[in-house]
Each structure stands twice: as structure tokens, then as C-alpha cells.
């Protein structure tokens, strides 16, 4: 697992352990006409059973799948000094917001994408900041490259775990690909109100 973290526009030492469950591949049956959350690759994600079987590692700061936390909350809170949570990009924002979880209790919330092309991460970031008012560190996990950073940053992400094998020194430059943007996101103001227009 990669350990190259960019936080608040700096490359930092990452002391968080990111727990990504590895699970067996099962045949996925899709029902015609039914709206379900579609995953990019059709790979499985862990069921409760799988999550219950996971052995929790002995570390101090850990990033856990949200579902795992919900299942084994007491055990987890006892074991770790600091817990961060992360979501798969196909997990439903509506579901998350209906949990009425106080997200600001957690110092890190992450979103994980399996594939670079999975753009759901941007909308999820925006919603978690805007609708759930999450104030702490929002982290992009998974297939994260230089080329997403500018957009992720503008979608509310404050840290980026760069994909294994890619240089974080190179990636961090992606944050300054553009010096201006047209539209506003989150707390910014759109270019047309910046009074820079001739």
C-alpha cells in the first residue's frame, strides 16, 4: 500500500494505516431495470460477513471502511486512539447522510476509488463538505494520480494518498495546474465576481 501522502499542499509523513479489505471474487448478478449502485469494475465489495472476519491490526491511527466501523463500533473505539472512516465511491450519499453520524468526530474521512475514471469521488467530496458540513481532513484514496488533484482539491479534498509507484513530488504539481477557475465550488466565488474581468 502506498504511503505517499499529500496533506494541505505538502508531502508529509503518513502515520495513518489505511485498511482495505481484500475479498474473494464472487459472481455478481445484475437485475435488469433495477437501480442499484454501479461499481466501475464489477468487482465485489465486502459483505457484513467479510467485515466481521477482518482482524483489526495493532496500530494507533487507522482508516477503516465505514461499514466495518458501524458493525464493530465498540471494539474499534476501545482499540484505537484515533479512527478515520472511508467510503467506497459506490456507497450512497443518501444512506450516509441518513445515518446521522457526527462526521466531525473523526479527524479523517476518506473516499476510495478503484479506477482513475471514477468521477463519483468529486461529487461525494462536494456533498460531504457542503451538505454534511465536514470540517476535518477529507482524503482521496485509491487510484489517485497527479491529474485528479486540481479537481479533487476544488471538490473539497484536503489530502491525497498517491497511488503506489507514482511520485508524490510530481503529483503535487498537479494542484497548481491552473491559476484560475471559472465556476465556484464550496466556499469559493466564481471568477465573474472576482472583479478581474475586463
Amino acid at each position: 500500500m502506498s504511503n505517499q501522502l499529500i496533506l494541505n499542499k505538502k508531502i508529509v509523513n503518513n502515520d495513518w494505516v489505511f485498511l482495505l479489505p481484500v475479498i474473494e471474487q464472487k459472481e455478481v448478478k445484475k437485475q435488469a431495470g433495477k437501480v442499484v449502485m454501479f461499481k466501475v469494475t464489477g468487482e465485489n465489495f465486502p459483505e457484513d460477513d467479510d467485515l466481521n472476519k477482518i482482524k483489526l491490526p495493532d496500530v494507533s491511527k487507522i482508516l477503516l471502511p465505514l461499514k466495518l466501523y458501524l458493525l464493530r463500533k465498540d471494539e474499534i473505539e476501545k482499540k484505537y486512539s484515533e479512527v478515520g472512516l472511508w467510503l467506497y465511491s459506490h456507497e450512497d450519499f443518501q444512506w450516509l447522510s441518513n445515518l446521522n453520524l457526527d462526521l466531525n468526530k473523526f479527524s479523517v474521512i476518506g473516499i476510495y476509488i478503484e479506477k482513475f475514471a471514477d468521477g463519483r469521488i468529486y461529487s461525494l467530496g462536494n456533498l460531504i463538505r457542503r451538505k454534511l458540513k465536514f470540517k476535518n481532513d477529507l482524503r482521496a484514496l485509491g487510484d489517485i494520480l497527479k491529474d485528479q488533484l486540481f479537481f479533487l482539491d476544488r471538490s473539497g479534498f484536503s489530502s491525497f494518498l498517491i497511488k503506489e509507484g507514482r511520485s508524490a513530488e510530481e503529483a503535487i504539481k498537479g494542484l497548481s495546474d491552473f491559476s484560475h477557475s471559472y465556476q465556484a465550488t464550496l466556499d469559493e466565488i466564481p471568477s465573474w465576481r472576482k472583479n478581474l474581468n475586463g
Binding site: A117, D118, F151, S155, Y182, S191, W192
Partner: peptide
């Protein structure tokens, strides 16, 4: 302008 590099809708 609004749609150019809209950060949420890049992918």
C-alpha cells in the same frame, strides 16, 4: 465558462 474544467464533472 461554467462547464470548462468543472471540478465535479471531469469524469
Amino acid at each position: 465558462q461554467w462547464s470548462t474544467f468543472h471540478p465535479e464533472f471531469a469524469l
